[in-house]
Design a protein around this nucleic acid. Structure first.
Lengths: 362, 362
DNA sequence: TTCTACTATTCAAACGTTTGAATGTCAACA
DNA sequence: TGTTGACATTCAAACGTTTGAATAGTAGAA
């Protein structure tokens, strides 16, 4: 029983155990073209022995020699945000049919971790990098390092084409407009808005879209009913934010029949706030979210929301990365960055409805 | 400008660029003990050049030579289950202070993927493996391979000590009992139970705990009000299951004032079902969940639930893995598997309350 | 017989690091 | 002058794999 000190079974072990050279064993087990020349009997013998010993090729040695790792680094800003998961799923789906494997990292909304994981991805010689980053990051310096090593990179959730990086994100403005138009069609005229926190990239375009749509349909948005979430400390803090915004609105005594919230968790916070005050959703006040994450779907009432095609976005990011790898084979020069603004979609659930005739909470 | 064809900057590049040998550069950049002997001026020069060129050591070459990868494989059965994330967080927290890095994989509830990722973890020469597996898997064969390579392994969410694998899981029975006692204390006597699907490991002990507690406090559980979820196809199908179970219960015309659901998503499905039928939670019927995942917290009413200390469980799994690595240095023989049954905790929110005097929905 | 072609297998170099041993330099000491 | 030791740097082998080139062995063709 050939027990290596390293604890791992190597080609040499298998070779010795069945009396062939390391080369032959390698050729057979890696199914190299040359393996057609190897006698069927030999192949069977080698494979049997490899299985018996529990041989697994050493990925380090292999990628060192082959000069590629078959790996795509996937760096998510925070996996505890339900927003990230479908994107990751899309990426996985896009990589599945190829021989590339995702190397998944979770930065936990910590700049320090983000940096160190990105470094690690580079050290592991990932051949491409996909960054999921709706959160605030000043990626400038480290992403530069990625480029310096000629590793193609795609970012999901932010537009960084200005810095030469291909970007996939939802059309936030269209989404904001979609929300506003839906509320208008239901008959709402006094609409409160909870904007995203200042430092979040998505906040501005969503608000711009909502404002534009409101103007188009002739709704006047009362500035006193347009609140802004405070800075977020983690992905779920939108809930608390939504809750306190609604308390504030109710305390103000102003009338409103609907709330367009920044995202689904904010919307859930709003529902909580309204319920606390004895108001019913949607009878007394409609609530709209954004993103379409799991909690919005399984809450009761189900949150009407603006769905981001997250899975598709992840899929696209994977495809672009693979494209870039192919391109790199052919031409040396770096292709121009690409931009996708995916169309959002209105998902009507039960948190929105027509306003009561005798309107207004409070 | 030394542009390597491989696209990556190597030690040789740095060496040539500043006129020292590869050895010296390696010694300096890896901060080997010998680097104390290297002139301060030299060190600075080398470091500056490395930074300028964007050098990152090749992890493959390094771990090949050093014979260890500083990596712990983390294989989650399905990251889209909110249950997994806090565990992963705990693992990350446990690994943080060490130089080990988590290699995170998401099996997407697919046996095929589970196997191929486990294989990959082995090929990457992860020094330890943590498997998160509340889901059904017959891991026998592949986990055996892990053992064959002397890689310590810890499983979270199932008891596999019988197969010699250290296991961390919640004390499901205690949890089930906790739920039942809470409902009893509130004054409920007619309690419906939604059991987990047959193939899920957790189902049986939770039910056993509930039954035991019911007996202890003198509650008779009507077998017609004990339903079982159908087989799950994905982690969120508990919602649909809970919904249809409640419809069934209501259709039966039997009276009950509370529902103890298998997990939080099932509970949310139950709330939906009750609401559909015009019943209020908790006034007309209390609902209890299990796990304490995000959607339970942000729904309104907040779901009263049995909290699993997921983060702590992940932390423990990480610690045990590190322990095993240390042990392995010292003694050759494999230590006995360890077992942790973490105590669950009752989290009271607003989905549970006293039954109405004139009780019972119908 | 020699040549060619094919089959089956092995040699040996290389991938980028690390590291124990070796080399060289310089100053101080005997 | 030679010896010792400290310092600064380099040599060269090794990690486990892959692969172009080389080596045998066999068989059929000229």
């Amino acid at each position: 029983m050939p027990q290596r000190k390293s604890g791992h079974v190597t080609l040499l072990d298998v070779a010795r155990a069945c009396g062939f050279s390391v080369s032959t064993v390698s050729i057979v087990l890696s199914e190299a073209p040359l393996s057609q020349n190897v006698a069927e009997k030999t192949r069977q013998q080698i494979r049997a022995m490899a299985r018996q010993l529990g041989y697994h090729p050493d990925a380090s040695a292999r990628s060192l020699r082959r000069r590629h790792s078959q790996t795509i680094g996937v760096l998510a800003y925070d996996l505890s945000d339900p927003f990230c998961i479908p994107i990751v799923r899309g990426i996985q789906a896009g990589l599945q049919p190829t021989s590339y494997l995702p190397l998944l990292m979770d930065a936990q909304t910590e700049r320090r971790l983000f940096d160190s994981y990105l470094k690690m991805i580079l050290e592991r010689r990932a051949e491409g990098v996909i960054v999921i980053a709706s959160w605030v990051f000043e990626e400038a310096n480290l992403l530069a390092d990625v480029e310096k090593n000629h590793v193609p990179i795609v970012i999901v959730g932010r537009d960084l084409t200005g810095r030469g990086i291909s970007s996939v994100l939802v059309d936030n403005e269209a989404g904001g407009a979609l929300a506003m138009r839906h509320l208008h069609q239901l008959g709402h005229r006094k609409i409160a808005v909870i904007r995203g926190p200042e430092e979040l990239f998505d906040s501005e375009p969503r608000w711009a879209g909502a404002r534009r749509a409101a103007e188009e349909v002739g709704i006047r948005l009362d500035p006193r009913l347009v609140l802004q979430l405070p800075s977020m400390v983690d992905p779920t803090s939108g809930f608390q934010g939504g809750l306190s915004c609604v308390r504030q609105m109710l305390a103000s005594g102003l009338k409103f029949t609907a709330i367009a919230a920044f995202d689904d968790l904010t919307a859930l916070g709003a529902v909580r706030g309204l319920t606390e005050a004895g108001l019913r959703v949607p009878e007394d006040c409609s609530v709209l979210g954004f993103d379409d994450v799991l909690p919005a779907e399984v809450a009761t009432p189900g949150i009407t929301t603006i769905r981001q095609p997250l899975r598709e976005m992840g899929l696209l990011a994977a495809r672009w990365t693979l494209d870039a790898l192919e391109q790199r084979e052919k031409s040396a020069k770096r292709p121009a960055p690409r931009l996708e603004m995916s169309p959002p979609e209105l998902v009507v659930r039960t948190s929105s409805g027509k306003p009561k005739r005798r309107s207004a909470p409070s």
